[in-house]
Amino acid sequence: MSDKPTPAPIANPGPDMIYQQALAAGMFKIQHCAGCNAYVFYPRHLCPECGSAKLEWVQASGKGTVYTTTMVRQRPEAGGNKNLCVVELAEGPRLMSRVEGIAADEVKIDMAVTAEIVGSGEEPKFIVFRAEAKQ
């Protein structure tokens, strides 16, 4: 454990810190613009669609589809092949992520996926996805 004193909480954090704090508390939040009704990811101070500062936090559905994907080829000693993809959330915005729980070469464009928060210790948490079970 570190002997460093715990810093005082920041009273009025910016969008990124609010996002990270929500993730750390187990919630995947994105922004909704009251100015133009767009959903926004990644967290911003101004809406990239209309420029409004009226961005409010909403719980993301966590549902999405794979917009595009690649298999990153790596030697086994470097961790082996892994998936990297861009997921389009049901609300509209996209984010870079990876699909876990299935082989990297089984991840396909248009596959339905669900968000999951991962990360351990002091490192910032982040969002990965799992393929939805076939109906």
């Binding site: 990124d16 595009t68 990153v72 990297l84 984010l95 990876r98 464009i109 910032p124 982040f126």
Partner: peptide
């Protein structure tokens, strides 16, 4: 970049995903 760096993308990976989408 904060929202991509956890996934460690190399330059080639973004282009690969563009190519994958073009193929699709």
């Amino acid at each position: 970049v904060p929202y991509e760096s956890p996934f460690g993308p190399r330059l080639v990976d973004g282009y690969a995903m563009a190519a994958a989408r073009h193929m699709y």
